[in-house]
Simulated scan of single mutants.
Amino acid sequence: MTQDEAISLYESGFWKSMSHRDRAMFQMFERRLCMPFSVFHEAIEKTLGRPVFTHEFGLNREGLQKELMCEAPAPTMEEIMNLIPAEKRLIVAVSGSES
């Protein structure tokens, strides 16, 4: 798909009549973004039934595709965090709220 075709699709709002699964399947296999990212993000989370972290789209695209096609299980939280290079990883754990 060309950039102009992707822009035309985006502007048409074609995704508005699609199910979450159809949105996720379409966009996950199309390199150019053809709908608002927030719409795509919501669709993939609802389809997979789990939170999908933003870095997974860039660092685990093939894994997400396989998960959508039921060819691979969801990654563990450790696997998701390990997608981020160790030298760039900073994880803050927060437990409970203080009153």
Rank of each mutant, 00 (worst) to 15 (best):
P75G: 04
E62A: 14
S17Q: 14
M77Q: 12
E11S: 09
A6G: 05
S17C: 10
G96V: 07
L68T: 02
I44F: 03
S97G: 08
G13N: 06
G13H: 06
T2A: 12
M35I: 11
V39Y: 05
P51W: 09
R21N: 07
M28L: 15
A86L: 05
G13F: 08
A74C: 05
S99Q: 12
L33T: 03
P36L: 12
G63A: 07
R50I: 11
S99W: 13
M18Y: 15
M28A: 13
E78W: 04
R50A: 14
H20M: 14
S99R: 12
A86Y: 03
H55Q: 02
R32H: 15
R23I: 15
M25I: 13
I84S: 03
R32N: 10
E5A: 15
F53A: 05
W15S: 04
N60I: 02
M69V: 06
I91M: 10
F40C: 06
E62K: 14
N82F: 12
K66Y: 07
K88A: 09
M69R: 12
F14A: 11
R31T: 12
V39H: 03
Y10G: 02
I7A: 14
H55T: 02
S95C: 08
D22T: 09
M35T: 08
H41E: 08
G58L: 09
E42A: 14
Q65H: 02
R23M: 15
G63F: 05
N60R: 07
G96K: 03
L33G: 01
P36R: 11
W15N: 01
C34D: 03
L64H: 01
S19F: 10
P75E: 10
V94K: 05
K16G: 09
H20T: 09
E79P: 00
K66I: 04
V92T: 13
F37H: 09
L68I: 04
F14R: 07
F53N: 01
F53G: 00
Y10M: 13
H55K: 01
I80G: 02
H41C: 05
E62Q: 11
N82I: 08
H55Y: 12
E42H: 07
A72Y: 02
L83R: 03
E67A: 15
L33P: 00
H20G: 00
S97V: 11
V39A: 05
F26K: 12
V39D: 07
F37D: 07
P51D: 10
F40Q: 01
